[in-house]
Design a protein around this nucleic acid. Structure first.
Lengths: 194, 194
DNA sequence: GTCTATAAGGAGATAGAC
DNA sequence: GTCTATCTCCTTATAGAC
C-alpha cells in the first residue's frame, strides 16, 4: 500500500499530463486522490512544489546509464547492428510510460511562465544529443564511419526518432513503427558507412 | 487603426503563446487590450471562441500555395538545388512569426482537454508530410532520386528541420542555422541521389 | 461599444478540531 | 493526517447605464 504522498504524486502526474499545470487544480488532485484539499498541504506546501517534485522524479540522473546497456555496447564493434539497436533503444525509452509523461509535460509547459520551474525541450534534448554525438565522434575516430559534422549527424539520427514519437503520442508497441525505425537506421548507416 | 476585435485577437495570441490557454484569463486579455473584461463580450461570446477564431486565422488554407512558390519550382529539374531551397523554405516558414505562434500553441495545448478545439501535432504535421512525400514520389518516378520508402524519406527530411525549430524556439535568422540546414540537405541528397 | 456593478463559483491556502 | 470551515482573491460571464 502506497502512502498518500506517493499517491498525490502519481495522480497529479496524470492530471498535469492531461490538463497541463494551469489546467489542474489542487481540488482536482484531492478529488483524484480521495482526500480533502487541505490534506494535500500536509505533504506539499504548494501546487508548485508538487510539480517540482514530480519533474524531479521523472528526470533520470544518468541518461547513458539507462540507454547504453551492456547488451547494447557488446555490439559496438559491429556499427550497423549497433546503430539499429541504439535507435530501437532510444525509441523504446521515449515510448516508456514515465518518459511519455515527461515529454508531454515538457512540451506543454516549456514556454509558459506559469511555474518558475525551468523546463525546456532544449535542455531535455541535450542529454540525448551529447550522448549520441559522442558515440558518432568515437565511431569516426575509429574509422567505423565517414568523417562529417557530428552535430548534424547526431541531430538527424535523433530527429527522425523524436518525430515518430511526436506523431504517435499514445502509441504502443507497433510492428510498422519498428519497421520504420529500422528503415531509418538502414538509410542512416548507408549514408555514414565508409 | 485596427478595430478592437483585431486587437483582442492579436493580444490574446501573444498571451496564449506565453501562458497557454488555461494560464490566460479574460482579465489578462482585457488588460493588454486596454478595456474592461465585459467589453470583450461585445466581440466574442466566450474565451473559447477567441481561441477558436485565433487558431482558425493562424491556419493557412493551402500549404503548397505558401511553400511551393514559382521561384522554388523553377529549380525542380535540378534536384540537388531544389532540395536545398525546399529545406530552406520550410524552415523559413516555420520560423515566421505567425507560424512560431501556431507551433507553440499546438505543442502546448495538443494534449489537453481544456478546450474542445481539436488541435494536434499530427494533423498540423500531416500537411507538410503529404506535400513532401508527393515531391519525393515524383522525383522517384522521374528517376531523379533512388527508389525507396517515400514515407521514411519525407519524415527524415522534415524531422531534422522540425528538430532545429524545436531546439531554437525563439531563433531569428542565424548563419549557423542555415549552414546546418544546408549540410542536412547535402547529406540527404548524397543519400538519395542515383 | 465601453463602462460600472455584480453574480456565482473556482482558485490556492490556512486555522483549528479530532 | 485528515477533517470542516473559512479567507481572500481570481475566474467567466451577465445586466443595465451611458
Amino acid at each position: 500500500m502506497k502512502n498518500t504522498k506517493e499517491i498525490i504524486l502519481q495522480k497529479s502526474t496524470g492530471l498535469f499530463v492531461r490538463k497541463g499545470y494551469s489546467g489542474t487544480s489542487i481540488r482536482d488532485i484531492a478529488k483524484e486522490v480521495g482526500i480533502r484539499e487541505s490534506a494535500i498541504y500536509n505533504h506539499f506546501s504548494s501546487k508548485k512544489e508538487i510539480f517540482a517534485e514530480l519533474i524531479n522524479r521523472l528526470t533520470p540522473e544518468s541518461l547513458p546509464a539507462i540507454i547504453l546497456t551492456d547488451e547494447l555496447l557488446d555490439e559496438i564493434s559491429n556499427p550497423e547492428i549497433f546503430i539499429r539497436n541504439f535507435a530501437r533503444k532510444i525509441f523504446e525509452h521515449w515510448n516508456s510510460s514515465s518518459e511519455r509523461s515527461l515529454i508531454k509535460i515538457i512540451l506543454g509547459e516549456q514556454f509558459y511562465n506559469n511555474t518558475e520551474i525551468d523546463i525546456s525541450f532544449s535542455s531535455y534534448y541535450s542529454g540525448y544529443f551529447e550522448m549520441t554525438k559522442l558515440i558518432f565522434s568515437e565511431m569516426m575516430k575509429h574509422k567505423f564511419i565517414k568523417k562529417s559534422d557530428a552535430d548534424v549527424l547526431a541531430d538527424s539520427f535523433l530527429a527522425y526518432l523524436f518525430l515518430l514519437r511526436l506523431k504517435n503520442p499514445d502509441s504502443l508497441e507497433n510492428k510498422e513503427l519498428i519497421r520504420k525505425i529500422d528503415e531509418h537506421s538502414k538509410l542512416f548507416w548507408e549514408n555514414v558507412k565508409r
